[in-house]
Simulated assay, not measured.
Amino acid sequence: MLNGLYVMDPNRFDDVYGPEARAAIERHLTITSPPLTADRLTPDVLENLDVLVTGWGAPKLDAELLAAAPKLSLVLYGAGSIRPMVTPESWARGVRVTSAATANATPVAEFALSQILYALKHGWRYVLTARANAATAPRGNEIGVYGAVVGLLSLGATGLATARLLAHHNLVVQAHDPYADPEKAAQAGVRLVGLEELFATSDVVSLHAPLTPETHGIVGATLLESMKHDATLINTARGTLVDEAALVDVLSRRTDLFAVLDVTDPEPPVAGSPLFTMPNIVVTPHVAGSLGHERRRHGEAMAEELARYVAGEPLLYEISESGLARRA
């Protein structure tokens, strides 16, 4: 048996590693300590550690920790981005890291689907108009779902998951992603297009891109101005993908456009932000990702990865140093 240790934010531990996931993990790991927080790690609990089971609140894999844990070979990270945890020293040591980021694609895609379909019915517009006027909002000329064009910015894990859900509806789905595999896109029923075409021809544009130097502020005034009449922008990815000053400016003039923002920059928006009061913007408090027991998917994914590791099989969600450079 390998020696393991649970180390993470105690407020999220049970959400991620529920009874079933823990039972599966502990079939392969000897875990003698109760779950710890990163600040309680000492050399005596690290010296025989083979596998670190963690998530939000993970310890940083710096030189000091690695020196105290000479046997550490695998980290199961039951959350999303591993950037805050890994270091050049951990990559140099050859510590393998697998992440549950792909598991988080499911609830984000589900939320995106709900907002896409709602947008095509002008749902939020009617809610906000009725509230502002204290009266039923008059019906408009929304196009509805059938035959509508939905554009996805990025076909990573979340973009593909969203495309697969959209495939159950009578929609045209297109995407922009310079790194997308054309064969995978075709299998998902997605047409690959240029960035400008995506914004100019989609009834709804849903953002799923990672945050990189190339995507920071990628959605600016020019793209927003080019959007179709009555189009909607949905952002469940990263707030900094959107130039919010440009968004406020364009949507204050283009009142036919609408935006659903589950992420903002900063997050949450500052008090008094026009994002809260504009009639064609709605802000939700970063609820698209895994919440509560939805996080159990993360723990189950990590338990499955551990079983593969013990059996000497390839890990499905392992992240390499080079692969991390392309992720959010």
Rank of each mutant, 00 (worst) to 15 (best):
F199P: 02
G217F: 09
L306E: 07
A119F: 02
A134H: 15
L192M: 04
G272P: 12
T129G: 14
A157F: 02
V53H: 11
V127G: 07
A325G: 12
A288V: 03
A135T: 14
I319G: 12
A180F: 00
K121Q: 15
V242T: 08
G18E: 12
G94R: 00
S206H: 05
A132T: 14
M85W: 02
A58H: 02
A231C: 02
G123E: 07
A63P: 03
P266I: 10
R254T: 10
H293T: 15
R191Q: 05
D15S: 12
A137P: 10
Q115P: 07
I116E: 00
P279R: 13
A311G: 03
P10F: 04
V45R: 06
H216Q: 13
A301R: 01
E304D: 15
G78R: 09
Y309S: 00
P84V: 06
P59G: 14
V250Q: 01
P43R: 05
A103C: 02
R125Q: 13
G159M: 02
I143G: 13
N104A: 09
A79D: 05
E26Y: 12
A58E: 06
R96Q: 11
S73G: 13
A186Y: 11
E244T: 13
L29V: 06
V260T: 13
A109M: 10
M1H: 09
N170M: 14
A92L: 00
I31Y: 10
E197A: 12
T212W: 04
Q174S: 03
H286W: 02
A101M: 03
L61G: 07
A325D: 12
T106A: 10
V205T: 06
T201L: 08
